[in-house]
Nucleic acid binder design. Structure first.
Length: 154
DNA sequence: GCCAACGTTGGC
DNA sequence: GCCAACGTTGGC
């Protein structure tokens, strides 16, 4: 089983929104980056655990844990001309963008801010903490994942 | 709101 | 295939 981190802007969709969603589940749509797309399409497997990170937040922080409940399938918003994420170059025969479904598992007892994560030496190699890292879907090592759960409390 | 870092686009 | 211009991300 692998572990991942998904970024979201809480103003658009927060972990609490996920907790309130039907079946605490949502399609993680709107990702428009090829590297992230490849993780969604090929990497993420049912049962994988996912850290949910709030970007553009005060403070930016890991706030909860979710689980992949459906593996990669075409993101429907790419086909919708009225959607912000419409992509005229994508077809149903050859979809360009993929999403997974994630279900909220636990909210961390205490959010782990970016500052705090940076202060933990064992986490220093996380992509999230690297300078200029913008990828919104990232793999997380098993030890890093367990440590974050310990620090945040589940 | 600023701006550094990065990804994408398109002219050549 | 290079690279300048442009758009986006996301911390601050």
């Amino acid at each position: 089983m692998q572990h991942w981190l998904l970024k979201t802007e809480p103003e658009a969709f927060s972990f609490d929104d996920l907790l309130r969603a039907p079946k605490k589940t949502t399609g993680w749509d709107g990702i428009r980056n090829y590297q992230a797309r490849n993780f969604l399409r090929d990497g993420m497997k049912k049962g994988d655990r996912v850290l949910i990170y709030h970007s553009n937040a005060e403070p930016p922080a890991v706030v909860g844990v979710a689980e992949v409940v459906r593996e990669g399938y075409p993101d429907p918003t790419q086909f919708d001309p009225d959607d912000d994420h419409f992509d005229a170059g994508a077809t149903r025969e050859a979809p360009r963008w993929f999403q997974v479904d994630v279900k909220a598992w636990r909210k961390l007892k205490r959010p782990l801010s970016l500052d705090e994560l940076r202060s933990v030496r064992a986490l220093a190699k996380m992509p999230l903490l690297q300078r200029g890292q913008r990828l919104s879907v990232q793999p997380v090592g098993p030890h890093e994942f367990e440590l974050i759960l310990e620090l945040g409390g589940t």
